[in-house]
């Protein structure tokens, strides 16, 4: 008994390696699925399409007032560094949550559906570590898709729309490096929000063996949150809804930045992550092989 404990303690630092290996193999598995590759590739195309659309719209309306595009899109014309932010904020409404939900659905429910989760549960890997690997796989691929979108957006923006530095919505010209910082900030904020949704999806994923249910539940959560936030009588509910800080992400294009709503959004997302992961963990522990 004592020997084993000692052995385990001696072996403890060595344990990290398998976790990393598991994580790498999980990542390889996710990225080898054709649907994931196609999905991520299409996400990467979104900023390109948006950029082409905006440049066509802008050149078509150059004779008139230029009011044909409004909102953030109006700012993007001739201001290429804003394109990745614009495209990411656009994708936040549906495409990115869909990606997160799809990955989370594959992670546990998908394995159940194929009957492969049983093998994983029986394997000499702790259930907590199994969940950690699955969650890290989902998180990494979500981050990867968002970064890919930002990169294609930035390249498209600089090539098609041009612009020197970034014009903030407050009318100030930010230098190139600051602009990159804003894009980086957008990536971080968006990633955290999608992680929050993916964590909830993962919890659902742990309970069912039908990946479709996970996607339906996650998108249902979004739609219901949207409806609830639109009802004025339920305004008091707003601060706990998962989507309530998504709108404020568009504020990264302001100058000076107001950190308060952004920080609040991250905290809210962390709360949802804690809820999602702990429910998923509880389910994984109690699940029979």
């Amino acid at each position: 008994m004592t020997a084993m404990t000692v052995g385990a303690e001696v072996g403890a630092p060595v344990r990290r390696a398998p976790l990393l290996r598991l994580f790498r193999s999980e990542l390889r598995m996710i990225l080898r699925r054709p649907r994931n590759i196609i999905g991520i590739g299409l996400l990467g195309l979104v900023p390109v399409v948006a950029g082409i659309g905006i440049s066509i719209a802008a050149s078509g309306s150059s004779s008139s007032d230029g009011d044909s595009v409004d909102g953030l899109a109006a700012l993007v014309d001739g201001n290429g560094m804003l394109l990745p932010i614009f495209a990411l904020v656009l994708a936040l409404n549906m495409l990115l949550p869909l990606t997160g939900a799809m990955l989370a659905a594959d992670a546990l429910a998908g394995e159940s559906a194929h009957g492969t989760l049983r093998g994983l549960l029986l394997a000499p890997v702790g259930r907590g570590r199994l969940l950690a690997v699955k969650a890290m796989g989902v998180a990494t691929v979500v981050l990867l898709s968002i970064v890919l979108m930002a990169v294609t957006g930035l390249v498209t923006g600089l090539l098609l729309l041009g612009g020197d530095g970034m014009l903030s919505s407050s009318g100030t010209q930010l230098p190139f490096v600051d602009g990159l910082g804003r894009i980086g900030l957008t990536i971080v904020l968006l990633t955290v929000q999608i992680w929050a949704l993916a964590a909830v999806a993962l919890a659902v994923s742990a309970y069912t063996e039908h990946p479709l249910i996970v996607i339906v539940c996650s998108l249902g959560l979004l739609i219901v949150s949207g409806v609830l936030s639109a009802i004025p009588a339920l305004d008091w509910l707003d601060p706990v809804l998962i989507i309530s800080s998504w709108e404020s992400i568009g504020e990264v294009v302001r100058d000076p930045l107001d950190w308060a709503p952004l920080g609040e959004g991250v905290l809210r997302a962390v709360c949802y992550m804690v809820i999602g992961i702990s429910i998923a963990y509880g389910r994984m522990l109690s699940r029979d092989g």
């Binding site: 709360c271 804690v274 809820i275 992961i277 702990s278 429910i279 963990y281 509880g282 389910r283 994984m284 522990l285 109690s286």
Partner: peptide
């Protein structure tokens, strides 16, 4: 499992 889930959710 239950207590982990409950504690996490409560937090």
């Amino acid at each position: 499992a239950l207590s982990v889930a409950a504690a996490g959710t409560a937090t």
